[in-house]
Amino acid sequence: MPPQPLSRVRSSAKVFASPEAIQRRPKLAPFVAEIIVRWADIEANVGSILAFLLAAEAGPTIAMLQTVRSASAQMDMIVSAGKIKLIDPELEMFEAVVRLARSAARKRNNVAHHIWAFCDELPDALLLVEPVAYLDIFVAVSEANLDPKFETLNKSRFEPDNSRILVYRQSDFVEIIEELKSIARCTTFLINYLHPEHPSRDQMYSLLWNEPLIESAVKAVRKSRPSVPEPE
C-alpha cells in the first residue's frame, strides 16, 4: 500500500513543517538518503542508455540530460531517441524499463522536493507536504494580514490541508528502495542487452524478464500501442 494521506491516518494531528523533522525521526533518515542515492544510480544508467542510442560520449550526454530539470521531460527525450533507433523486441523492453524508471522518479521526487514535517501523534512516521499546499498557507496568511480583524480570524485556515500530506513509515521507504534496486538492475541489464554483440545478450534478456516489475511494464507498453488492424 502506498503512503496514505494524513487525513485518513490521523486527521486531527498537529503538523509541524520543518527540516528538523529528519532529526526528530533519526531512524528513518538513512532510508531517505538511500532513496536519493539509488535514484542517482538509475539516472546515471539512463544517461548511459541515451549515450548508447545517440552513439555519443557518456559525459556530454549526461550533462545534456541534467540540463533538463524535469524527470518526466528527461524520460520523454530518452523514449524519443529509442523509438528512432530501436525496433522490437529491443524497443519494447526499452520502453518497459523507461516506464519503470519514470514511475520511480515520481516517488523519488516526492522525497526530494516535498516539504518535510512531523507530528507528535505519529512518532514512527515522517510527513511529506505537497509544496503547493505549503505555499497555500503563506498565501492565506498574507491575505489575512491585510484584514483588520486578523486576530479574530479562524486560524485553522493557516494549517496545511491534511489530505495533501502523505504519511511515510519505514515500510513505505523500504518498498520504494526495493523498487529502485530492481529498476537499477533493469537499467544495467538493458544497457548490455541493447549492445548487439554483447556476449551475454540473451542472458541479459532473461534476467530482465526475471525482474518482478518487468512483466506488468511490458504489458502496459503493449496496451499503450495503437492496435494493428487485422488483415481482411
Rank of each mutant, 00 (worst) to 15 (best):
P226G: 06
S70L: 04
V141C: 04
A63T: 09
D88T: 08
L28G: 09
G82H: 06
L126I: 04
R157A: 06
A56Y: 00
P231W: 00
F189S: 02
S80K: 13
R10C: 08
D88P: 05
E197V: 04
A71R: 11
L122H: 14
V97R: 01
V174Q: 15
N45F: 14
R201M: 09
D124W: 08
L91R: 12
P196S: 15
A184E: 14
P148Q: 12
R157I: 01
L65A: 09
V111R: 00
H114T: 02
R102F: 03
A73C: 02
R222M: 08
E43Y: 00
R169N: 11
P226F: 03
F138E: 13
G82A: 08
V139H: 15
A17R: 12
A17M: 10
E211H: 14
P26C: 14
P5R: 03
F150D: 02
A101T: 05
M64E: 08
K149F: 06
R169V: 07
S182L: 10
P131H: 05
P229K: 04
A117I: 06
A112V: 14
M204C: 13
N145S: 00
Q170E: 15
P2L: 06
K83V: 10
I84R: 15
R169Y: 04
W209R: 15
F173I: 00
F150Q: 05
M77D: 03
L65S: 01
L127I: 01
N110E: 15
V129G: 03
I183S: 15
I177C: 10
I115N: 00
A217E: 01
I49V: 10
L50R: 02
L100Q: 06
M77G: 06
T152H: 14
A29Y: 15
K223H: 09
E20K: 08
A217M: 01
V79I: 15
S163V: 02
F31I: 00
I176K: 11
M204K: 06
E90T: 02
A55V: 02
E43F: 08
A101S: 15
A125K: 11
L146M: 06
I42T: 13
L126H: 04
N162A: 09
W116G: 05
R8A: 14
L100N: 09
R164W: 00
L53W: 05
P3D: 11
I191G: 10
A51Y: 00
L180E: 07
A56F: 00
A44K: 07
V139F: 10
R10M: 14
A33H: 09
A58P: 00
P60D: 09
E57I: 02
D76C: 06
A220L: 11
V32A: 11
A17V: 13
Y205G: 10
A17T: 03
A21W: 09
F150H: 12
A96P: 01
Q23R: 13
C186E: 12
V221W: 11
E95H: 01
K155Y: 12
R99K: 06
P212R: 10
T61S: 07
T188F: 12
A33V: 07
S200G: 01
I49D: 01
E95N: 05
S7E: 14
S72W: 14
Y205M: 13
I176L: 15
Q66S: 06
G82I: 05
C186H: 02
F16R: 13
V221I: 15
S156R: 15
L190S: 05
A140L: 03
V221L: 01
